[in-house]
């Protein structure tokens, strides 16, 4: 076991454990805070795999914006301190869907790579990702930006005051 193996195992365990806490804790806001830990540990995994840019994008977008927005929305509506009993969670379907997709993805991964060893690619620096996005994948990038623009316009239309 190298240092990398140990690190990625520890971070993976941290991500998995805190993810389980996200779905099992009865404290609504604490679930959001555990999500911060999960996503942070995931960013750490990316970092260990030398995907630097992806790791920091994960921090900036998911931890710094998405979870904060989520916490903001929860606190704005209903955020009791302490455990809440009436949480509407359908346990068994969730276990079925979550466990099923995890097993399917794991089986797919094992089936695809079985015993082949993979040479690690060059580190995912900003320069490399930038070159890949703007040289090889310009069209998907532009299509995605159109999609985002459409979502933005939609959000403005939905939130604008209605004229009668």
């Amino acid at each position: 076991m190298t240092v990398t193996d140990v690190l990625i195992c520890a971070l993976g365990a941290l991500a998995l454990g805190s993810a389980l806490l996200v779905v099992s804790t009865r404290h609504v806001v604490r679930a959001g805070l555990w999500l911060v830990v999960t996503l942070g540990a995931l960013a750490g995994c990316y970092l260990v795999l030398t995907a630097e840019l992806v790791a920091w994008v994960q921090m900036l977008i998911y931890v710094g914006a998405v979870v904060v927005l989520l916490l903001f929305a929860v606190m704005l509506t209903r955020a009791p301190i302490g455990a809440s009993d009436g949480l509407d969670r359908s346990r068994w379907p969730a276990v079925l869907v979550g466990g099923g997709s995890a097993v399917a993805l794991g089986a797919l991964l094992v089936e695809a790579f079985r015993w082949s060893s993979i040479r690690p690619p060059a580190p995912g620096t900003a320069e490399r990702i930038g070159a890949a996005v703007f040289r090889d994948w310009v069209l998907p990038f532009e299509v995605l930006s159109v999609l985002l623009l459409a979502a933005l316009v939609g959000a403005i239309v939905l939130s604008a005051p209605r004229r009668s």
Binding site: E52, W56, M59, L60, G64, A65, A126
Partner: peptide, 13 residues
């Protein structure tokens, strides 16, 4: 290599 980006990400947290 991407110090500026890292700083902005961390400050955002």
């Amino acid at each position: 290599d991407m110090g500026l980006f890292v700083v902005l990400a961390i400050v955002g947290v």
